[in-house]
């Protein structure tokens, strides 16, 4: 190694020295696999979009049906994530703080949306909330299934564990002393919860919201059965991609996919920023 190479390697170094072997092998394999499975295919998608040019891209995106589909996807995902923030936080509280029969079972069941295949959830919701279903019939003549409300219901199911599982560990770490401190300073229970505990949970709640929202926007399997899929009304963006593909309209599918992908990236960025901000300010998430 030449002197200049030594000098430069002291200034910039890929990895800190370590006696543990296997760095080259494991990182090399990981990067190769990541590139083959994820990065190259995504790059292909972006490449196809670039071929459309700005005008072609915007022409597809400004199509009324596309706009409505994106609006439905983002709107329902947003509402569902909001509802999940309320009930997910409540559920996390009940599970961490209270002891009641069946708590363990319920705690385990919160992960059901992670484990249950989306198509199964989809047909179950569709038949439950259909006008002749167990729950749907209770609400007649108000219709739940085959409207955007049905989509929101499916997305609440999909997003719930994201909020609970992000908030729960932070809640478990709350030091009882903090609540007692608030009480000695004269705060009643309501003030302690809303002025002390919830603000401390804000980063976790926001992260949970962002995760549930991101997942909801892209969700397909659990939604299409209950949505009714009426163009302009209850047609979600991922379904429109599938429809465009079936029409062999690759350009149309690609453009919608790209805009959704970009928004996913933005959401990831937001999540990372929340976590970094929270770490900087509060020491941890």
């Amino acid at each position: 190694m030449t002197a200049s190479a030594t000098a430069s390697s002291a200034g910039w170094r890929l990895k800190q020295p370590s006696i543990i072997p296997g760095f080259g092998l494991t990182l090399g394999f990981s990067l190769a696999y990541l590139s083959l499975i994820i990065l190259i295919p995504i790059a292909g998608l972006l490449w196809r979009t670039a071929e459309l040019g700005w005008s072609g891209f915007f022409a597809i995106l400004s199509d009324e049906r596309t706009i409505r589909a994106l609006y439905v996807s983002f709107g329902t995902a947003f509402i569902a994530a909001l509802i999940n923030v309320v009930f997910g936080t409540l559920l996390a509280w009940v599970l961490t703080r209270y002891r009641f029969p069946g708590r363990r079972l319920i705690d385990a069941m919160v992960d059901l949306p992670f484990a249950l295949p989306t198509a199964v959830a989809g047909i179950a919701f569709a038949s439950l909330y259909a006008p002749n279903g167990w729950i749907g019939s209770l609400f007649m003549p108000f219709r739940i299934a085959f409207t955007p409300i049905g989509i929101v219901i499916a997305l609440i199911f999909i997003g719930l564990p994201f909020v609970v599982r992000t908030v729960q560990p932070i809640m478990e770490e709350i030091d009882k002393e903090v609540e007692e401190a608030a009480a000695t300073l004269g705060a009643n229970r309501f003030q302690t919860i809303f002025n002390v505990l919830l603000p401390g949970l804000t980063p976790a709640i926001l992260t949970g919201f962002a995760l549930a929202f991101a997942r909801g926007v892209g969700e397909y399997g659990s939604v299409i059965f209950i949505a009714g899929n009426i163009p302009y009304v209850s047609e979600i963006a991922p379904l429109l991609i599938v429809i465009r593909l079936e029409e062999f309209n690759y350009a149309g599918a690609t453009a919608i996919a790209t805009i959704m992908l970009l928004i996913s990236f933005a959401m990831l960025l937001v999540i990372n920023l929340i976590q970094a901000w929270s770490r900087r300010r509060y020491g941890n998430v």
Binding site: S30, L31, L34, I38, L39, I40, P41, I42, G44, L45, R48, T118, L211, A214, R215, V217, G218, E219, Y220, G221, A237, P238, L239, I241, V242, L245, Y250, A253, T254, A257, M260, L261, S264, F265, M267, L268, N272
Partner: peptide, 23 residues
Amino acid sequence: LITLIDLPFSISPVISGLVYVLL
């Protein structure tokens, strides 16, 4: 790198299929 590994979590499954159709 960690963010990249998380990427498939935040991509619509439909898009995950679409990229291979395009490829």
